[in-house]
């Protein structure tokens, strides 16, 4: 509860800060719409030559695009800005100020920066998702909806833990921004069902850079093609990564000596 209140406070601060730059709203709207337009036009080109893509019907791929935007929005809203700031603050020593705060430092670094305009991607993602579901005309039972939400949460936890591990590397290596670039390139591949990719790339996108859990798996849950093994696997992976990233974070903190502050 206290954590929610804290998040609310950071969110308010960010809204107040950004309200001075209202033009950013329109820039982000333009960029998000453009990015969505590319995805949709790309699908249109491909489905003008094929009826299904690796067994996925057009509206199912559309649902996947919705999930891709939704999760991408969450990453851009809070995960990425927080982790980038963490890396920055380890380098210039300002992490000291966070560590002196009475709350859990991992929690604070994870939520303290919110890029509110990225909410746009989340809204657009939800919109696309809703449109895809209507077009699929398929009854979504309570169970399926629960599976979808569960997989989305597991995916978000996996992505968050993965980013935290990458960002925590900065306690040992000062320059790690480039590793984040790798993630961004790999996330692009999540626009498409990972089942399309040849084995080595599919494993890479599932276990090395776990993009598949964030996009393909929730979309599969929604379109009712997910076995319980994958679901259990995703939940187990989320829990394991969450613990590993926590352990890693504490190991990193022990190394931290406040470089120059």
């Amino acid at each position: 509860m206290k954590y929610l209140r804290l998040f609310g406070a950071f969110l308010r601060a960010s809204i107040v800060g950004e309200a001075a730059y209202r033009i950013n709203f329109f820039i982000q709207l333009f960029e998000s719409l453009l990015s969505l337009g590319i995805s949709l036009a790309g699908l249109a080109v491909i489905f003008s030559h094929a009826d299904t893509l690796g067994g996925w019907r057009p509206d199912e791929v559309l649902a996947l695009v919705g999930v891709y935007f939704l999760v991408g929005g969450v990453i851009g809203l809070v995960i990425q800005p927080g982790m980038e700031q963490l890396i920055e603050s380890v380098r210039n020593g300002t992490l000291d100020f966070t560590l002196t705060k009475p709350e859990d430092a991992q929690f604070i670094v994870s939520i303290r920066r919110v890029e509110i305009w990225k909410l746009m991607d989340i809204v657009l993602g939800l919109g696309v998702l809703a449109a895809a579901l209507v077009r699929l005309g398929q009854e979504i039972g309570v169970l399926q909806a629960a599976e979808f939400v569960g997989m989305l949460l597991a995916g978000a936890v996996i992505i968050y833990s993965f980013w935290l591990i990458l960002a925590t590397l900065s306690f040992w290596f000062v320059r790690v921004e480039n590793i984040l670039v790798i993630f961004q390139s790999m996330y692009e591949a999540g626009r498409w069902p990972v089942s399309l990719y040849p084995g080595w790339l599919r494993y890479g996108l599932t276990f090395i850079v776990p993009v598949a859990f964030a996009t393909t798996v929730p979309a599969e849950a929604l379109t009712g093609r997910l076995g319980w093994e994958t679901m259990l696997g995703a939940v187990a992976m989320a829990l394991v990564l969450l613990v590993v990233s926590r352990v890693f974070w504490r190991a990193g903190l022990r190394r931290y000596s406040g470089a120059s502050a």
Partner: peptide, 14 residues
């Protein structure tokens, strides 16, 4: 990596 991955994804899709 990005320069390789983007065309590679379209290669695979097509």
């Amino acid at each position: 990596i990005g320069q390789v991955l983007e065309p590679l994804v379209y290669l695979i899709v097509w």
